[in-house]
């Protein structure tokens, strides 16, 4: 699979010229603060997400990790009271700049949710739909097969592509959603608790799939399952909350280091079960 990483952002006419350097990182945040109305949900996140690696975000409930994840493809735009300060750079460009089309952002930065949410349509249509409405001009059959293979689902569904996606198991439905996400050839895939509704075997299949996908895509995953973050990710960000219930990033580093020798005592307390 060939993914072009340096496509410029789709812009309106008045936008500035694209940067020559597409940015060293897949995502880079500068002074990111997130508010829901008057509530300061997350403060001062400085995060550099490496390309074609898996970055996990862990932390106790309410620490803001899902909120930050949703900022990475402007999903928080859909919440009326949500606003952000600071920058989220995608390939060196601020995705919150006035000239950026948020729909294009979400096409380039796909998302997979906690609960598999296939459309009540055939397996084939679930994969083909997103690409079609994005003006896909190539061979749809090939694209569907490529996406299902990429999601490690093809062998299980190739003989029943016209059957309803709702007849698949939970794990298969989640992999179908991953196939749907990669069908539009995003550069980044955001995953919000992608395996928390699955049994242990289906969970491991999703984790194996994530590691396979990381050869072509940047993956950022939020998980309550600390062991999953340890097993699957290259980098881990630990988030916590302060007394005002504002989330913040405590530590961010290589997963090996976070789980064997974290720098911050709060991280140590969390991953050893002394806190949270």
């Amino acid at each position: 699979m060939t993914i072009t990483l340096e496509r410029p952002m789709v812009r309106r006419k008045e936008s500035p010229a694209p940067q020559a350097n597409g940015g060293q990182y897949a995502i880079e945040t500068n002074g990111l603060n997130i508010y829901y109305g008057a509530f300061h949900a997350v403060r001062n996140v400085e995060m550099k997400v490496a390309r074609r690696k898996i970055t996990a975000m862990i932390g106790p409930s309410g620490c803001g990790k899902s909120t930050v994840l949703r900022c990475f493809n402007r999903m928080n735009d859909l919440i009326p009271s949500a606003r952000i300060e600071g920058e989220v750079l995608f390939q060196g460009e601020n995705i919150y700049a006035d000239y950026v089309d948020s729909v294009e952002v979400r096409r380039r930065i796909g998302m997979v949710f906690q609960k598999a949410n296939p459309f009540p349509k055939s397996i084939y249509d679930n994969v083909a739909w997103g690409a079609r409405i994005n003006g896909f001009k190539g061979n749809v059959d090939n694209m569907v097969e490529r996406s299902l293979r990429g999601a490690a689902l093809w062998d299980e569904v190739k003989d029943k592509l016209q059957q309803s996606a709702l007849g698949l198991s939970g794990g298969q439905q989640q992999r179908l959603c991953i196939a749907r996400a990669i069908a539009v050839e995003p550069e980044i895939i955001l995953m919000d608790e992608p395996a928390s509704a699955l049994d242990p075997i289906a969970t491991l299949r999703i984790e194996d799939l994530m590691q396979e996908l990381a050869k072509d895509y940047t993956i950022i995953v939020v998980t309550h399952n600390m062991q999953q973050a340890a097993r699957v990710s290259d980098f881990t960000a630990f988030f916590s909350v302060d007394e005002q219930r504002t989330g913040h990033m405590v530590e961010f580093g290589p997963t090996d280091q976070i789980f064997t020798n974290p720098s911050d005592q709060r991280t140590e307390d969390y991953i050893t079960g002394r806190f949270g």
């Binding site: 062991q227 340890a230 097993r231 997963t255 090996d256 789980f259 064997t260």
Partner: peptide, 9 residues
Amino acid sequence: CLRLMATQQ
């Protein structure tokens, strides 16, 4: 070894 014990359960 320690890394695998810590990260792979």
